[in-house]
Write a protein that binds this DNA or RNA. Structure first.
Lengths: 231, 231
DNA sequence: CAAAAAACATGATACAAATCAACTTTATTT
DNA sequence: AAATAAAGTTGATTTGTATCATGTTTTTTG
């Protein structure tokens, strides 16, 4: 079955969230009157796993990671690019607590929207609710893809997958400057820093990619895709 | 941080779906007039990854697994117990295709609800939509937990986690008869059949559980919890 | 009810990836 | 500008888990 083959990490979610377009002027004003915009510096924690969720967040500028913190390990659930909502999971959640942390990969601008206002609008505008369902489902599909990637593929496959994903979804170019450190990149790929470096070198030696520090260039897209499919 | 420690698989979702209670008589009739109930035998495929999603499903009786099929491996995303919706992910999905397969662990009864009727009700009843958002979010939290478990814990921890989860959420007893074969149980735990057998034996030798074929009895819940937390 | 197939079980071996150790280069701080 | 810390890199070693091989028990089937 062909479709089964195309399981990609899809570490990155929607291109751009458009749900607010289904709000009327009044609802939009209500939202706008109940939000604050905050700047977060590179590396800063935007929201902390286990704390009470009082806001839904909207990333208006920057790049962030959503991750779970265990006792020793952390798991990056997804990367959130600009113009996307963060923290929807806490919307209707009996515990009312964030199940994950969010941190800024680069300097970021975040709008904090009062969660109760958000809930109120949801309950009165079914079109808006449908849009949110749409977003939640897109997120679920993406998470399943990454779940599959991280559990079923081996290291080279995961690495290829994530390189392609970043190129396709974040940078939208075959040539880009990685905004993450090697340690962050390793964490994202679910492996150790040492191994990510070794494996990147292998890709470089095999002429699949060109690397110079943080500058990446994809040379053989198809071969990487193949390694991602099974590598 | 204490909360971080309590990451459990939560392979199993909501106890019971109650969203239909927010429908009025008319909407309920609409749904009921547009569904069929189908029986699936143990092992049968209820829905196949890659096929067009024409229905949302409601498991009225039985036990099923939701899983992704790769080229060689399969990943069990979650277990769905009785009285729960299946296939919500396909509701608002540009591809309109199931991203996963569903199969019956035991003989099961499934109500197939026309997806367009379901969408229609969603768009006209914001309360219902909110309930669905609730369900989707509960599912996401659960998936994140299992994602963490399968990627960050090692085999003994995963096994302990899943035994506890089945006991707590499915059987609701310390003593139960496992409905899955060793192969299915291994697949669920993300390891090979050989290893699951070896490790169960270890748990048995260590007097953490009692096993006789498919009959399981948890002897040391706390110790298993500890192994699950880090094992 | 015998034969075939599937499920269950156990030991030996192989291997992918983590860990450990040490060293270099690049930032950050004082 | 020197000192310190962090990030990046490479090689050697260890280890958890899969794979392979083989045998036993249970279930299914003709």
């Amino acid at each position: 079955m062909l479709i089964g083959k195309k399981i990609n990490t899809c570490t990155v979610g929607l291109d751009r969230c458009t749900c607010f377009e289904s709000l009327n002027a009044e609802e939009l004003e209500l939202i706008n009157n109940n939000l604050v915009e905050v700047e977060f510096k590179k590396g800063e924690t935007i929201c902390k796993q286990g704390t009470f969720a009082t806001h839904v967040m909207y990333l208006s500028k920057g790049l962030t990671k959503v991750f779970m913190e265990g006792q020793q390990d952390t798991l990056v659930l997804k990367i959130i690019p600009e113009d996307n909502l963060i923290g929807l999971t806490a919307l209707f959640n009996e515990t009312n607590v964030f199940q994950y942390s969010v941190a800024a990969y680069v300097d970021s601008l975040v709008k904090l929207i009062d969660i109760n206002i958000f809930r109120q609008v949801l309950k009165q505008n079914a079109k808006f609710a449908s849009e949110i369902i749409n977003i939640l489902n897109a997120n679920t599909v993406q998470t399943y893809g990454r779940f599959f990637c991280l559990t079923q593929k081996q290291a080279y496959g995961r690495l290829a997958d994530i390189i392609l994903c970043l190129s396709d979804r974040i940078y939208k170019k075959k040539e880009f400057e990685l905004l993450l450190s090697r340690r962050e990149f390793a964490e994202l790929s679910g492996m150790t820093t040492e191994n990510v470096i070794r494996m990147l070198k292998k890709f470089k030696d095999d002429k699949l990619i060109q690397i110079d520090g943080k500058k990446f260039k994809i040379l053989k897209y198809d071969k990487l895709q193949e390694i991602s499919n099974y590598g």
